[in-house]
Write a protein that binds this DNA or RNA. Structure first.
Length: 783
DNA sequence: GCGTTAGTTATTTTT
DNA sequence: TAACTAACGC
């Protein structure tokens, strides 16, 4: 045990060894947050204070869950079987599987990912004949998710006008459709399990008694519903150990509520608030920059990072004439770092605010022959061919899954057109059955073609009944015709590879399952065949009689379930369903897979600031530091938007260990148009004494364009220095020129109109917006 | 029923 | 610019 606590600093130690009381750990960037969290768990177990089964640890990402699992494995020799460690969604999935009847779900309910959900929303809207122009499906989807994340069902939402009435109507129909099909979306996982626990007192009591120690990672990212879920689960004998950093809250746009931290402190009368402020990552100047920048935010719990490391190097700032020049300079600097500092490329990162910015950078890196890796983008389980394959598997697990049915009924093409499907949908709706059911009863010409599809599903099911999962997948690929279809396609080679990779994914999923049960990651010793924790089978004590789906969400807890539990003593927490197919499908939805492979090569790292959270690099380049880009123009409109952007900048800065570069371009090609920008206000918020300008601070710094930039898009104007085509406007100003205005300050000329004293100039003043000014009246001076 | 073309529209992302 | 969607013609 002593070596467990070895090397912890005073505050980390205090946090780890806190008594069993609620605690809020304000863990600054690089302060050893994950270490504290995992050591706390290990300490609880090793000191004999807690049994693993009494621990519930929640994270946001599968990555974080996995990392904690690995670290715990290294710390503990003890058997930690029975601990619940996973993402909110993974845990809820587990809960709902275990108590699917109480939750009014089929045992093999399927999980909709974002794309599936959008398709489902569109389907509902079509059935309700809602105008998609008036109610964009994406917005509706967002709205529904938002409502669910606030814990509101359709009936709970306030109707204030015709618009919201329509939204509510769609929401209700959508939920009904999901219920009928036996599918749940991401937000539903949470809401449904929240309702399950709040409705079922006995069940809730059981888990409250069980989980005496609830630990939450990235607490600043929790949404309202997640917080309520935690509140519900924390009984009188439980304590919540929440770790978070309000300054790193950057997901408000998807429902994260930083306010939860303050609410938690108040609601639970938290006595133990511990700040972890010693940073083990960055050198002094970098930390100072971060501290002083974030000090501009008003709503903070307050925290100041410090380090015992020296000041280190100054923060280097670079101004480029255009995005092309910026990229060229970045490449040059990277080459110097690698050549002269011997820095590995994998220790260098280019960060940017939005994905669109990566293109120029990639182009420059590619031309220079520097290996790089771009994070983000398509994930394995989201690829079209994989979604098709999964749809077949979903139909095997659950024929009521209309979404899956529609996706592959005519893929590969078998002559079932939109007309047939529409007709099928009508019959199904009229009879109140699934498409599959309706298809079985179909008469007429279309019946034969639909029959072909049905037969594929049916034979597949009977053939694969007892096969191991990878073979099920293999059969499906073959019998569905998917493999043949992509083999015949000219550019289908990659897709064929991916489909084959799906067999591997299934195989390794099966293999890892006894040890780690993704995404739930329950640590267990290898279980004897036929699988992990095959307990008393389905129909355990908690299982209520199936309720009629008529009022699926509000029916009271059945007496049977309650009495069974009371009589039964030790409650059966019901093992996860042993159906490997359903588990695999849940895994595919909840853990959409690696973004990109190609690990191993020493490649420079490129990603958005958002996806850099939690990572660190020796050298970090924060690029595109321009007003309108970073902070993003859209965000400046929202309230608290600017503060969130600043937190984003704070996250970006604190990724760097020894070297930090900030760069911006005066001119950038965006949406096919050249934009003239001024430097980000965040540059001003980093104190001068910490920075070293590599270009003159009010610079020009022109050179010839790099040869690889000589595309038509970056000619003349893009340099930001040449006047617009046509005759001389005769007022001495030119596009791209920096000017200064008495009231609006620094700006850059975006475009011009007229000539002489009649001329009007359009000037981008950054935070003051883009303005048209008349040359005659405006007090302008070149800057 | 299916492939092609014109029009539209642009953050951030995990589950 | 480029990616994606919706409507159009075969």
């Amino acid at each position: 045990m002593s070596n467990l606590l070895h090397n912890l600093n005073e505050h980390q130690l205090a946090a780890v060894t806190l008594p069993n009381q609620h605690a809020l750990i304000l863990a600054g960037a690089g302060s050893g947050k994950t270490r504290v969290l995992t050591t706390r768990i290990a300490w609880l177990i090793q000191a004999g204070n807690a049994s693993p089964a009494s621990i519930l640890a929640v994270t946001f990402t599968n990555k974080a869950a996995k990392e904690m699992t690995v670290r715990l494995g290294a710390m503990l020799t003890a058997n930690i079987r029975g601990m619940w460690l996973g993402t909110f969604h993974g845990l809820c999935n587990r809960l709902l599987r275990a108590h699917h009847r109480d939750a009014r779900l089929p045992q093999l309910f399927q999980i909709l990912d974002t794309g599936d959900q959008l398709a489902a929303v569109k389907r509902v809207m079509k059935a309700l004949q809602v105008d998609e122009d008036k109610f964009p499906p994406r917005q509706v989807q967002y709205w529904i998710a938002d409502a669910k994340e606030k814990g509101e069902r359709a009936g709970d939402v306030q109707v204030v006008d015709d618009i919201s009435r329509k939204y509510v109507e769609i929401y209700a129909a959508y939920d009904e459709q999901c219920q009928k099909e036996g599918v749940v979306d991401f937000a539903e996982l949470l809401l449904r399990s929240f309702e399950l626990l709040s409705r079922n007192e006995v069940l809730c009591e059981h888990y409250r008694n069980r989980f005496r120690h609830i630990l939450v990672d990235e607490f600043q990212d929790t949404n309202v519903l997640q917080y309520r879920w935690l509140k519900l689960l924390a009984g009188p004998g439980s304590s919540i150990f929440a770790v978070g950093d309000d300054d790193q809250s950057i997901y408000r746009f998807r429902g994260a509520n930083v306010g939860n931290m303050a609410d938690f402190e108040r609601d639970f009368r938290v006595q133990n608030v511990i700040r972890l402020e010693q940073n083990y990552r960055s050198q002094g100047n970098i930390l100072s920059a971060a501290n002083q920048l974030i000090a501009h935010n008003r709503n903070r719990l307050g925290k100041n990072l410090w380090t015992s490391a020296g000041e280190g190097e100054p923060i280097r700032v670079h101004e480029a004439a255009s995005d092309g020049y910026e990229a060229a300079w970045l490449v040059e600097e990277v080459q110097t770092l690698v050549r002269e500092q011997g820095m590995a490329r994998r220790d260098i990162a280019f960060l940017y605010r939005s994905n669109a910015q990566s293109r120029v950078l990639e182009h420059a890196l590619f031309s220079a022959g520097i290996p790089y890796r771009v994070y983000g983008g398509q994930r394995f389980f989201e690829r079209m061919e994989i979604k098709h394959a999964l749809a077949y598997l979903r139909l095997l697990a659950n024929t009521d899954d209309d979404g899956a049915f529609l996706r592959v009924a005519n893929f590969p093409v078998r002559g079932i057109g939109a007309r047939t499907l529409e007709q099928l949908q009508d019959t199904a709706a009229a009879a109140g059955v699934s498409l599959y059911r309706a298809a079985q009863q179909l008469q007429g010409a279309a019946a034969t073609k639909v029959g072909v599809f049905l037969r594929i599903i049916d034979t597949l099911r009977s053939e694969t009944n007892d096969l191991p999962l990878p073979e099920v997948v293999e059969h499906m690929l073959d019998r569905s015709g998917l493999l043949a279809h992509y083999r015949a396609e000219r550019d289908g080679a990659d897709r064929v590879d991916n489909l084959n990779e799906l067999i591997n994914a299934a195989a390794s999923f099966e293999q890892e399952r006894p040890i780690a049960l993704p995404p739930m990651v329950e640590i267990e010793p290898p279980a004897p065949a036929p699988g992990p924790a095959v307990a008393q089978g389905d129909g355990g004590l908690f299982d209520a009689p199936v309720n009629p789906p008529a009022q699926p969400l509000s029916a009271p807890l059945s007496d049977d379930a309650a009495s069974a539990l009371v009589d039964g003593g030790a409650p059966n927490e019901a093992p996860p369903p042993t159906d490997p197919l359903a588990l695999f499908l849940a895994h595919a939805a909840l853990e959409s897979g690696e973004n990109q492979a190609a690990e191993g090569m020493d490649a420079l790292q490129m990603m958005t600031v958002h996806s850099a959270k939690g990572l660190e690099f020796h050298a970090v380049f924060i690029t595109g530091l321009e007003e309108g880009l970073f902070p993003h123009e859209q965000s400046v409109m929202e309230d608290d938007g600017l503060e969130e952007e600043r937190r984003l900048m704070y996250v970006a800065i604190t990724r760097a260990r020894t070297r930090l570069y900030l760069s911006y371009a005066k001119t950038r090609l965006l949406h096919g148009q050249t934009r003239y920008n001024i430097a980000s206000r965040f540059l001003d918020e980093v104190p001068d004494e910490l920075t070293k300008w590599l270009t003159p601070k009010l610079g020009m710094g022109m050179a010839n364009e790099p040869s690889w930039l000589s595309s038509p898009s970056s000619g003349s104007n893009a340099s930001g220095q040449t006047p617009p085509k046509g005759r001389d406007p005769g007022h001495g100003y030119r596009i791209g020129q920096n000017v200064s205005h008495a009231k609006f300050g620094q700006g850059v000329i975006v475009s011009a109109e007229g000539s002489g004293t009649d001329a009007r100039l359009q000037i981008n003043f950054g935070r003051h917006g883009v303005k048209w000014l008349s040359l005659e009246f405006a007090k302008l001076s070149p800057a």
